[in-house]
Lab assay of single mutants.
Amino acid sequence: MSIQHFRVALIPFFAAFCLPVFAHPETLVKVKDAEDQLGARVGYIELDLNSGKILESFRPEERFPMMSTFKVLLCGAVLSRVDAGQEQLGRRIHYSQNDLVEYSPVTEKHLTDGMTVRELCSAAITMSDNTAANLLLTTIGGPKELTAFLHNMGDHVTRLDRWEPELNEAIPNDERDTTMPAAMATTLRKLLTGELLTLASRQQLIDWMEADKVAGPLLRSALPAGWFIADKSGAGERGSRGIIAALGPDGKPSRIVVIYTTGSQATMDERNRQIAEIGASLIKHW
């Protein structure tokens, strides 16, 4: 067993022997301040990774656009098919120029040779490549099948209805392509620590998230040296922004954090800054 596999296998073990965790309302004060600064709703939840206990939450059962955070769930569904012998990570998928959609920095470079399922998941999570996500959605049967996968996990809230990039439209009061912070946090925890996926697939999923290259201005910008984070960000229309993450000190994750916002007129930089400040408060009061 590799060191990384050992780390993920012992996530519940280490967490069980940690000192009790206590909620700190100071972080919620910052979440509410972010709402004021952005002029928009902000949803927040913080779960203990081992027990699933909610440590703090704000608007945990209000719907927010998922945006690209759905790509972690998508690759979880792909990995479940791999575990069941219905898919192979090494299978190569070929596609054409007509398949390319807006923001496809990886797939646009491989029109000639195609990409493997493993490479597509890596591109979808680490670079948020939209064509990679659409190609992977095709392998599982489309958005409705991802929703069905989530329902089978016990998540009857999260739903995907459309493809990239239309799913980022974020129309107010439109339930399409949305989740709730509580539902997303619980589902992410199941994917990373539950028995739904094999140990190898859980490790692969967290490795992809740990290698995320496009979430630097968010929670990662607030992390002290030595902290662990595996995350996936999302951005959408109407001032929408979000991030889902597993993080913790001492090089291992111990909490799940989900943050979503929508309806702001603020710039992307300002949305990023507010999420980073929430992260800084979380870490300060850990």
Rank of each mutant, 00 (worst) to 15 (best):
A9E: 06
M1A: 01
I275Y: 05
Q4S: 13
L73D: 04
M1P: 00
V257A: 06
T198Q: 11
A183Y: 10
F228G: 05
F149E: 07
T193L: 12
P20L: 03
V8W: 08
V82G: 05
E237M: 15
P25I: 09
D83S: 06
S122Y: 14
P224E: 06
T187N: 11
I244V: 13
L192I: 15
I3M: 08
D36C: 14
P25R: 08
N134G: 03
R273E: 14
F6G: 06
K284M: 10
D212A: 04
A245S: 10
Y44E: 01
G142Q: 04
S240H: 06
S201L: 06
G263W: 04
G226N: 12
N152S: 14
Y44W: 03
A280Q: 15
L74M: 09
G263F: 04
E26A: 13
E166M: 14
L188W: 04
L218A: 04
S254F: 08
T107C: 09
E119M: 06
T112R: 15
S57V: 10
G236C: 03
D269R: 11
K30P: 03
S104N: 05
G242S: 07
G236Q: 02
G279Y: 03
S68K: 00
D33C: 15
A225V: 14
R92C: 07
R59L: 04
R7E: 08
I45Y: 09
F64Y: 06
A15V: 14
E61I: 10
G85H: 12
D36Q: 04
K144Q: 13
V31P: 01
P253K: 08
D83R: 03
P181Y: 00
L188V: 12
R159Q: 09
F149G: 05
T193V: 15
V214L: 07
G234V: 00
H5F: 06
R176I: 06
S2L: 14
A182T: 12
L135F: 06
L47S: 06
F13E: 02
L188Y: 08
A280Y: 10
Q203V: 13
L150E: 02
V8M: 11
E210T: 10
L73M: 11
R91T: 08
W208T: 03
L49K: 04
C121M: 08
P12G: 11
I125Q: 02
R202V: 09
S254H: 14
Y95A: 04
L28Q: 08
G263E: 06
P249E: 08
L74I: 07
Y103G: 06
Q274W: 15
A245R: 00
V258G: 05
S51A: 08
L135Y: 03
T69L: 02
V29C: 12
G154S: 08
D33S: 10
S104G: 06
M153P: 01
E35Y: 02
N152Y: 15
I93E: 05
A77F: 10
M268S: 08
D177G: 03
R118M: 10
D83G: 05
M268C: 05
A225Y: 13
T131M: 05
L10M: 12
S2E: 05
R159H: 12
F17C: 09
E26R: 07
P224C: 05
S254C: 14
E61N: 13
L218P: 03
M209L: 08
P65W: 01
R255I: 05
A200C: 13
F228R: 07
C18P: 05
F228E: 04
D36S: 13
L135N: 03
L146M: 13
I3D: 08
E237G: 15
K71E: 00
H94Q: 13
A34P: 02
A246V: 13
D129W: 00
P143Y: 03
R81L: 09
A276L: 08
V214R: 07
G263S: 08
V117L: 11
I275N: 01
G236R: 01
T69I: 04
L89Y: 07
L205K: 00
K32L: 11
G251T: 10
T116F: 04
S80W: 12
D177A: 02
T262I: 09
D48V: 05
K53G: 11
D212K: 04
I3Y: 13
T187A: 09
P253G: 09
A124S: 11
S221W: 09
G248A: 03
K252M: 13
A266P: 04
Q88T: 13
L218N: 03
L192A: 06
P217I: 06
F6V: 11
L73A: 11
V29L: 12
S201I: 03
E237N: 14
I283V: 12
I45V: 15
D161G: 03
S128G: 03
E210K: 11
A34D: 02
P249H: 07
G239N: 05
L55F: 10
R202I: 07
T267V: 09
V106L: 14
S96T: 13
K30M: 12
R176D: 06
A235R: 02
A15S: 15
K252L: 10
S128I: 00
R271G: 08
G76Q: 01
F14W: 07
E87A: 07
H285M: 09
L120A: 06
D207S: 15
C121T: 03
D250V: 10
K190Y: 12
D155P: 01
G242P: 00
Q4N: 14
D269Y: 13
S2A: 08
E169Q: 13
R271A: 11
T139W: 06
V258I: 10
V258Y: 01
V21K: 06
S122G: 12
T262Q: 02
M209W: 03
P253V: 09
H110R: 10
C121W: 00
Q86P: 05
V117R: 01
R7H: 13
L111G: 06
K30L: 12
S68G: 00
E46F: 09
E166S: 15
R273V: 10
T69R: 00
L89N: 05
A16K: 06
P217M: 14
I275T: 03
R7N: 10
S254E: 13
H5Q: 12
R159C: 06
I11H: 05
A23P: 07
L282F: 08
M115H: 03
Q4P: 08
W227S: 02
P172W: 09
A222K: 15
N98G: 12
Q86S: 15
S80T: 12
P224A: 05
E119W: 02
T69Q: 01
